[in-house]
Design a protein around this nucleic acid. Sequence first.
RNA 1: GGCCGAGUGGCGGAAUGGCAGACGCUGGGGACUUAAAAUCCCCUGCCCGAAAUGGGCGUGUGGGUUCGAAUCCCACCUCGGCUACCA
Length: 851
Amino acid sequence: MCSKKGLYRFSDIEAKWQRFWQERKTFAAKDCDGSRPKYYVLDMFPYPSGQGLHVGHPEGYTASDIVARYKRMKGFNVLHPMGWDAFGLPAEQYAVKTGTAPKETTQKNVDNIRNQIKSLGFSYDWDREVNTTDPDYYRWTQWIFLKFFNSYFDEAEQKAGPIEQLPIPEDLSEAEKQEYIDGHRLAYEAEVPVNWCPDLGTVLANEEVVGGVSERGGHPVIRKPMRQWMLRITKYAERLLDDLALVDWPESIKKLQTDWIGKSIGADVDFKVAGFDESIRVFTTRPDTLFGATYMVLSPEHPLVDKITTPDNKKAVQRYRAEAARKSDLDRTDLAKEKTGEPLGAYAINPVNNEKIPIWISDYVLISYGTGAIMAVPAHDERDFEFATKFALPIVPVVEPPDPEQAELVRQVKICFVGDGTAINSGQFDDQSTAEFKENITNWLAQRNQGQKSVNYKLRDWLFSRQRYWGEPFPILHTQDGRVIGLSEDDLPLRLPEIEDYKPLGTGQPPLANAADWVNVTSADGSKEKRETNTMPQWAGSCWYYLRYLDPQNTDKSWDPEKEKYWMPVDLYIGGAEHAVLHLLYSRFWHKLLYDLGYVSTKEPFAKLINQGMILGEDGQKMSKSRGNVVNPDKVIADYGADSMRLYEMFMGPLEAIKPWSMQGVEGVDRFLMKVWRAVIDETTGELDEAVQDARADEATLRLLNQTIKKVGDDIETFGFNTAISAMMIFINHLGRQTIRPRSAIEQLVLILAPFAPHIAEELWQRLGHADSLTYEPWPQYDKELIKEKEIELAVQVNGKIKDRIVVPADATEEYIETQALASEPVKAALAGRNPKKVIVVKSRLVNIVV
RNA sequence: GGCCGAGUGGCGGAAUGGCAGACGCUGGGGACUUAAAAUCCCCUGCCCGAAAUGGGCGUGUGGGUUCGAAUCCCACCUCGGCUACCA
């Protein structure tokens, strides 16, 4: 048995450096250090699930860690924190099943996932760890909720202000005044339809409802209005849209958010109801098609339905409404391929031509968008066309398409045309272009008090309460006379009570209603109140965690304003694209409220955003337990070490691309690291290899080294980690062949490798004779002169086909290159005596001779 | 249906107007070894050819722009992701 002293034992060495970093607090960020520029690099913090990490997590975390370590070497004061988004359904479901308190389950999972993350050697400042379920954390989530509750939105200023400053109309009674104030709070209560499952006695999230039945157990689910907390995000729609211009995010993500907000500009138009002193207001983006409105549709929930339905139609309409109520959102959209509806028997008057048009109800009109009613223009709207065709309603074309063929089909009512064109069948507006017509008709309606310009958003107010135990309790009391009051900030945190039974009550009441001692409160003045028993959704804690990292131990304030000014905004935010809309939109919304109230200094929280791509299984399919293709990161680390794991995750391909895992690929990068090791350490003795000498590198080595330093630095700046690694591989392949490996070259290689594979780099750095960690060593500088090649090889093409290659001095003139190219024998042969029409010389690339 | 992204060797990928296939994997051959592993060296897009510092083809398909296109433009096909009647 010959045991080699110098073999690289990754498990010992990785543990050694992880301990070193932890003990020395190597990565502690220094607040308000004016001597260095700051850099805040943030990962989307994980939900600590019982499954632990999957290989997708370390992908983003490794990328951000490389940037963090690189920036430190570039002289930045780096803030790189980590924490836990630990409220959520799984721990609660586990509690229902086993009786284990969610707090315990969560603690266990957090400890596990923290160990997993630590085993990868990320350079987090662990003193700043946060946990959304910690009362010292959710105290401030509740504090921000109170800010919403105690604020209103000033339309003129387009910003939030304290509710005390809300201008209140005069002549209101005390009760009306209170109602007015409550109606303007940015956090408010409303009756909202939720997914109610009678058999389970609980409310379900949208994703827990599949095809109209509960995902678990397959029980029927109906829509039922319940009292819910809402946040008035719609007030911020315009700013959330506009301020996307301020951030450096992928265009695709900006577009997703823009579409989600869904701004559309059009007009509100009032239609009188024949025989009633009522009118129906509709929103349309195509007021220019008003002459083609041949019927109207109200949503089944529209308040006027009962009033205007004729007795003959009442029965059928009621049946239709009941059916619609039973359908979930999914049923109403996904399954409703065939349009349905009922006529009310009532008629409306089209304001432009005074024609009587029938009024219908149908569930393709949503109560929650616009006014919950539409004018139907079947000739120019796909949905209306489908509906009119099915129920044989009249179709009148009013827009002539520019294409004559299409125009003919539209005139014959064969097709539906939704584009812009020229007005027909529209009285005095005939021959106007769509754009002109829109403008003119809107003014025409406004003059007659029958309509006006209007803007609508798809974005809805945010349903902010859940009928769950494991979430932040609302700092809210309900008085006996039905008022709602916010707790004083001094009474925070309002702690979650420990309860015995996590099951829902079966009445739709959340589990917290079980905790009578907690729910019933007697105030100092003897009055009795009840606590709110809903809890906040999982998004709440993640909306502002990036701010708590700035000052995580502060017991007086959510964060110190000085620290906020120093660190914000987040310079780089890395996470999965699945959070493209909700998490990022909600965070931006909270941030804007905090900005309006003066608690943060930037309009936007995240200056730059990058999404890491999904990692697929070795079979190229999405990883899943059922497919059996899940790669366990713990196993990879145990077999190859953290450095190889990190390196492979980055070498797989571009960060943002979707790419399949390959164990053989891991072996490839592992081999590379061993090559680096053997270039420095003699495997037999464990000492520095004899080839490592204090010598000057030869010209070729020096040139390649400087090229590599440049390439790796440039690639980190542009997140091209895969090509950075490839450059280092090329360099070590060269260096390994040298009989003398200059110490200076080795040291610089170790430094640029360090952000990628920090454990082996620290170990080599130490063995090269350095006492301290390389974390704050300056990033190697490359020499521009040394990079330049002396001679370059150019391809010579004749009519685009390569005929020869020539070698010329790097500083050769175009004339010289042209002469050399024309002197080449293969080129002469290819020219066959013809005279070149044109010679294109691309310096340092090629020569193309055109004949 | 809509939107977004992607199609390059046996595989992951590189090159974003200038020598296609860097780097890694796989496969083949050789060196070292009693043998194996590890390591090192050479080859590895396809077709023709005994070979050539021979020729031809080649970046999903079809067209176009250009001296020159994987890269830009137009049309289409395939795959993946997100989304779903928003008037």
